[in-house]
Amino acid sequence: MTTDFITIAIPFQASVRELHQAIDQELRAFGEPLRWAITRVTSETVEIEAVVTRD
């Protein structure tokens, strides 16, 4: 297993529920999300910093 730090940006979502789901889905493209937080938000994009694990 490795632990990797990543930063991603996704489009802003209309609802918190959709945003939460979109973050989880996008992070899973890089590995298993371990810890993440939104660190920047605009009306168009949301930036997320995260550590994911990969086997």
Binding site: M1, T2, T3, D4, F5, T7, A37, T39, R40, E47, E49, V51, T53
Partner: peptide, 20 residues
């Protein structure tokens, strides 16, 4: 240890399997 662009601190470990 790592400090990200946002100013938040993060980190990784080289041997997580040993911890587990």
């Amino acid at each position: 240890l790592k400090t990200a662009k946002s100013g938040a601190t993060w980190g990784t470990i080289e041997y997580p399997d040993s911890l587990l």
